[in-house]
Amino acid sequence: MQVFREKEEVKKAIQKAKSEGRSIGLVPTMGALHEGHLSLVENAIKETDQVIVSIFVNPTQFDNPEDLEKYPRTPDQDLQLLADRFSNIWVFFPEAQELYGNEILSENFDFDGLETVMEGKYRSGHFDGVGTVVKHLFETITPHKAFFGEKDFQQLQIIRKLTHKTGLPVEIVGCPILREDSGLARSSRNERLSSQNREKAAFIYETLKEVQGLFGTESAEYIEKWVKERFEDHPYLKLEYFEIADAQTLKKINRKQSGNQYRAFIAAYAGDIRLIDNIALDN
């Protein structure tokens, strides 16, 4: 495993790999790696010749400075985890100034409304920050394919829109959500949960599974009301939002239409830890 900390260094290595006919796969992460991240790496290894994992806690996508400060950082553990599991991958581990230059600022993007709903509604400037860092990474790494988890499904659709609008020649590959035994979606934030809250947070996925069953017979309006009532009665979890939306446009559903794909999205707090999840709905 090879670790790069400078852009020029990794660019040279990539240029050489491409000259040898190797395809490049990128797995962008913010560190605090877990099995969900490792599953993305495994998918990338199957589909590309040289996999690069980036580890970078991106400051521009946090609207809450306290959340940025508390975000788990385990660099030594991350590198060891990758080295133990994968022998031939590369890791890009830059400092903020190395990636951004002297001004660590977000660009402003228009994602055709994908950025104004759900996470965008509750996290001001978040997707400008995501778009900025992903654009920097794509321009530095120039991957053929980039791999993202479907847990952040809104982010996945926004990155697809980013490549379309910027013309960056990267194929975006969405990978299934990896879950703990309880059903809780794997996330670096889970490590900050108390043991009690971690156990109780499985209720989020339980609710989504029930929504999946209800979607065949009940209206979106009924299901939304039902979910809100379930969370009102829960002593450990506080619902921030629940929405059923078109999987492509992320627009909130008014009426189900045959042939369209829909997903249910949820954000909830367990104590002061914010958790998100989603699930595909059969139509």
Rank of each mutant, 00 (worst) to 15 (best):
N254V: 15
D110P: 09
F62V: 02
F92M: 01
T249M: 07
E6L: 09
V3A: 07
F231Q: 02
Y269A: 11
I141R: 00
P28F: 00
L168K: 04
G183V: 06
Q15C: 13
N64T: 09
D78P: 01
Q77C: 06
Q77T: 07
I177R: 02
I273V: 15
E66D: 15
K18D: 02
G213D: 12
W226M: 08
T142A: 12
V91K: 02
E98F: 09
N108G: 09
S124K: 14
R179D: 08
D128A: 14
E218P: 05
T166H: 03
G31Q: 05
V41N: 00
F109E: 05
M118G: 03
E66I: 15
E8V: 02
D84I: 01
R5K: 12
R160Q: 12
I158F: 06
N260M: 11
P75K: 04
V91E: 00
S187N: 09
G167R: 03
Y262T: 04
T207M: 07
I279K: 01
D272P: 04
I172P: 00
T60V: 10
L178R: 15
F92N: 01
L99N: 04
I14L: 02
G131Q: 08
K145E: 01
S19M: 09
Y269Q: 10
R255E: 15
N88S: 08
E150I: 01
L82P: 00
G101A: 05
L38M: 15
E243Q: 14
K70S: 15
S87R: 09
D181S: 12
N283Q: 11
S195K: 13
